[in-house]
């Protein structure tokens, strides 16, 4: 290209007079690359229905050949133990479909070789509207979330290579990747995006509560009272229609002596976040027992007894929980009747 510039005769240390023109061209290229890259990242490829009354969706998918094929691939991966080191455990082992993708009757998660995890398995629902993930909000991106269960440890490049080898050798995965992403190259980002897209599509928006709000169903008297009580005492945190405000709080649980978990402070290093956990959604709550980050409560009754027991709350308790005050038996039952509508 050098020779094509007869006018630029002064060459100094590899930079000719036409250098600034070249710089400009380069800068323009850099800018257009940036513009395109930006555009590309913001494309909303995820065809996830927007239920009435829901806020704007956070999850937006990413470049793909077919959104539905990505979701289908994610579903296949989700239930396939191929993802675990010894091919024993799938996502579904812990996130059971009939339990709104939580793990019924298990306080703490169970992994490969029967290892017991640190925390209770949360339900997977409406994740596409969630801004952070895990009980302490340690994960900021839904597609990235799967890295954590797949690898289990922070040093993992070895395992990921092993996983790619297994997927490549599989009779159908290469084809599934082709229909999802347009080529049968299997990469870790593609695996992560397929899983993320599948779980993002788990939407809960058609409970009796939703139908009642749309005027398609009616509330019984006790449910109506429960709704009013819920809005007064609980909805600042468990905000409708997602039943979470995507925030973090301490709802007054005593620190768990058996397995100490300081919660969100581990991520933010901010004193105010000591023993704070993510406000979980209460949708499908009847199916996701046991409750709380450590699964300490088996029944909704126990949860309501906790919120009602304002005398024994530890110092770090959120004032909004303190303000709830003792609830009568009747009030507790009414709230539970309302919560049962969220299934």
């Amino acid at each position: 290209m050098h020779g094509k510039h007869p006018t630029s005769s002064t060459v100094f240390e590899g930079c000719s007079v036409s250098g600034s023109a070249r710089e400009l061209a380069l800068a323009l290229i850099a800018i257009s690359v940036a513009v395109i890259a930006h555009n590309h990242d913001n494309t909303d490829t995820a065809r996830i229905p927007q239920p009435p009354g829901f806020p704007e969706r956070v999850y937006r998918g990413g470049p793909c050949a077919s959104d539905s094929a990505v979701a289908a691939l994610g579903a296949m991966l989700f239930e396939d133990p191929i993802l675990s080191v010894d091919s024993s455990t799938s996502c579904q082992t812990c996130h059971q479909p009939f339990a709104a993708f939580a793990h019924i009757d298990h306080a703490l998660s169970h992994g490969v070789e029967g290892r017991i995890g640190r925390r209770n398995v949360p339900a997977l629902q409406n994740l596409a509207w969630q801004t952070s993930f895990m009980w302490d909000g340690s994960i900021a991106n839904l597609d990235m979330q799967s890295l954590s269960p797949i690898t289990g440890h922070e040093e993992m490049s070895e395992n990921l290579d092993h996983l790619l080898a297994k997927l490549n050798a599989h009779p159908t995965y290469p084809l599934r990747f082709r229909s999802a992403f347009g080529s049968d190259t299997i990469t870790i980002p593609r695996v992560l995006r397929a899983l993320g897209r599948f779980v993002a599509g788990l939407v809960s928006a058609d409970s009796r509560y939703d139908r009642a709000m749309q005027g398609k169903d009616t509330l019984a008297e006790n449910e109506q009272r429960g709704l009013q009580l819920f809005r007064r005492h609980c909805a600042t945190c468990h905000t409708e229609p997602l039943f979470t405000n995507n925030g973090f709080a301490s709802n007054g649980l005593q620190p768990n002596a058996a397995s100490p978990d300081s919660g969100r402070i581990r991520i933010t290093h901010d004193e105010r976040d000591l023993f704070c956990f993510k406000v979980p959604s209460l949708r499908n709550i009847t199916r996701t027992h046991p409750y709380m980050h450590d699964g300490r409560f088996k029944r909704l009754r126990d949860v309501l007894a906790h919120y009602s027991n304002t005398a024994a709350l530890p110092d770090h308790t959120d004032p909004r929980v303190r303000a709830i005050g003792p609830l009568s038996d009747m009030e507790r039952k009414d709230i539970i009747a309302f919560l049962m509508m969220l299934e």
């Binding site: 990235m144 954590s148 690898t151 990469t187 992560l192």
Partner: peptide, 19 residues
Amino acid sequence: GPREGALDPRNGMYWTWAT
């Protein structure tokens, strides 16, 4: 979200316990 190339988590340069 995840990216190919230098930023692929496969390169082992990612903390998985926190984003």
